[in-house]
Design a protein around this nucleic acid. Structure first.
Length: 325
RNA sequence: GGCGCGGUCGCCAAGUGGUAAGGCAAUGGUCUGCAAAACCAUUAUCGGCGGUUCGAUUCCGCCUCGCGCCU
């Protein structure tokens, strides 16, 4: 990293879905002269707008938003891929003296951005297909035993039933021709040159669940079902990755007349609650977060956040609060 | 009013005279390239009262609630 460049501030807003990260992000961008960077595995995809809660143009209030709509439905979002897109973007924002404000729904992506990734091969769909096939041909526990032969240390950290993680570990061992735990020991290259300020939104659980209910209804009013219909009408494969996002599968089922819209709505709310719960579990362990107990669209919470960021040395007097700290 | 069937965790649902499967949900957690994913853990004393019994959720009686049928 360039040692001569000053340490610049970077804001990351973490919190569960529907906690108001996007609204707060725009607010902070206006106050401190910044731009919003989505850190969300689903907002990456073009065409999947309503269900992924992308802020629309008027909600963006003229603030540039990045890393939204950058993938087509057939492309694969990955944590490493996200980092590769985010790093040059950060360079650009640094050059333009804009405060980067990440709205983080996908905790893994933020961690990978900040801490880096071990130098190991990417996923290989071919190899995965073969591994899954031979797992079917063998007795249960095959993948677990296979990994144990390749890397006993790694096996201890993965549950025998977690096929997804077993396959990834096996894949890395085979492709890298060395144990994955050895590759991990070599360390990773963290993000440098930025001082990361993490703002955590933590509204009371019951209120959050209420928001989820209201937002689901609102999304449906906004024409979510129609969005799904036109995606399918445009010829998109229903098996494309983004259709796995919360709600899209359910709404496909509604279009097939297999369930009612009300049933879909209930299922969507439930899936969203569970997702929020997992996010909270993840973020609770995120180091260095300054937590605020409420929603990002609450003006009093917003001013608390602004106050905290000022204390941390951010500058609101100019558009670009890019004073070195 | 009578007859029949049935009341097992928030929901669905097995089951046995010796102290209650499973699924879903919920909650907690794990996670270095599918993460809005995947996985792991935890959660009941069987409608109420009494009887029989060494021991009943399981057998008997009464009560209660639900469903169906009949008059």
């Amino acid at each position: 990293m360039n040692q001569k460049s000053a340490l610049l501030p970077l804001v990351a807003i973490v919190g569960p879905t529907a906690s108001g990260k996007s609204v707060l992000g725009v607010q902070l961008a206006e106050q401190f002269g910044g731009e919003v960077v989505a850190c969300d595995s689903t907002q990456l995809y073009r065409g999947f707008d309503i269900g992924t809660a992308k802020p629309n143009l008027s909600e963006r209030r003229g603030i540039p938003h990045h890393l939204i709509d950058v993938l087509g439905p057939k492309e694969e979002a990955t944590a490493g891929g996200y980092r590769q897109m985010a790093l040059p973007l950060l360079d650009e924002l640094r050059r333009r003296a804009q405060l980067p404000i990440f709205t983080v729904g996908t905790g893994l992506y933020l961690r990978v951005l900040l801490e880096g990734l071990a130098d190991v091969p990417q996923r290989s769909e071919d190899l995965r297909v073969r591994l899954r096939a031979s797992a079917k041909d063998h007795a249960p526990g095959y993948l677990h035993r296979l990994l144990k032969r390749l890397d006993a240390a790694a096996t201890r950290r993965i549950a025998p039933g977690d096929e997804q993680k077993l396959i990834r570990a096996i894949e890395v061992c085979l492709l890298a021709r060395k144990p994955i735990s050895e590759a991990y020991r070599a360390g990773r290259v963290p993000l440098e040159g930025w001082r990361v300020l993490k703002v955590g939104l933590q509204p009371p659980r019951e209120n959050l669940y209420g928001r989820i209910q209201a937002r689901t209804a609102f999304m449906l009013e906004q024409g979510w079902l129609g969005e799904v219909q036109s995606l399918l009408a445009a010829g998109l494969d229903e098996n494309a990755k983004p259709f796995d996002f919360i709600g899209y599968r359910e709404l496909c089922t509604v279009l097939e007349k297999k369930i009612t819209l009300d049933a879909a709505s209930a299922a969507i709310q439930q899936a969203t609650r569970r997702y929020a719960k997992r996010q909270l579990t993840w973020f609770r362990k995120e180091p260095g977060v300054r937590w605020f107990p409420g929603f990002g669209d609450d003006p009093s919470l917003q001013s608390e956040v602004v106050g905290w960021l000022r204390e941390e040395g951010l500058d609101t007097t100019r558009g670009a609060g890019m004073r070195s700290v």
